[in-house]
């Protein structure tokens, strides 16, 4: 069976606004819970690893990606289906994440963030003994 990619197109955010009037988009995000913690898969085409900014402050995880606009010399835009702009999105997390252990990497315009849960918050399995 072949499934096709379905998309709703990029969604611009209403807030925050930029001072330059450039658009800010809300990146599509997949959130997955694993035994170690939470993984976020954030789609940010056109953003390289050095242009990503991830912060966790007061339970709010903020993801920012800066896009260098495509400027093709001697070319003019004839048909446009997508806009270009920075990406920004924030999530409120629970308190049990270890900010020092967050790992983030960018590959093919997709940001992968792994947030391990603090050791104390990991569920401990209690062995039940047969009496």
């Amino acid at each position: 069976m072949s499934t096709e990619v379905t998309t709703t197109g990029k969604t611009p955010t209403s807030a925050p606004e930029t001072t330059r009037g450039a658009r800010v988009y809300r990146p599509f995000t997949d959130i997955v819970e694993t035994p170690e913690g939470v993984n976020l898969i954030v789609e940010m085409p056109g953003v390289s690893a050095e242009d990503v900014d991830v912060t966790l402050e007061n339970r709010v995880l903020t993801i920012r990606g800066t896009v260098k606009p495509t400027a093709l010399e001697n070319f003019e835009l004839a048909h446009s289906e997508y806009g270009e702009g920075d990406f920004e999105r924030a999530f409120t997390m629970s308190e049990d994440f270890d900010a020092g252990k967050i790992r983030a990497e960018v590959h093919n315009g997709v940001l992968n963030i792994a947030l391990p849960r603090a050791a104390a918050a990991k569920p401990r399995k209690i062995a039940v003994k047969a009496a």
């Binding site: 990619v5 709703t8 197109g9 093709l72 001697n74 003019e76 835009l77 289906e81 997508y82």
Partner: peptide, 11 residues
């Protein structure tokens, strides 16, 4: 919208 969205530039 169809995937992928494309922009076409003319030179």
């Amino acid at each position: 919208p169809s995937f992928p969205a494309v922009n076409v530039w003319q030179g």
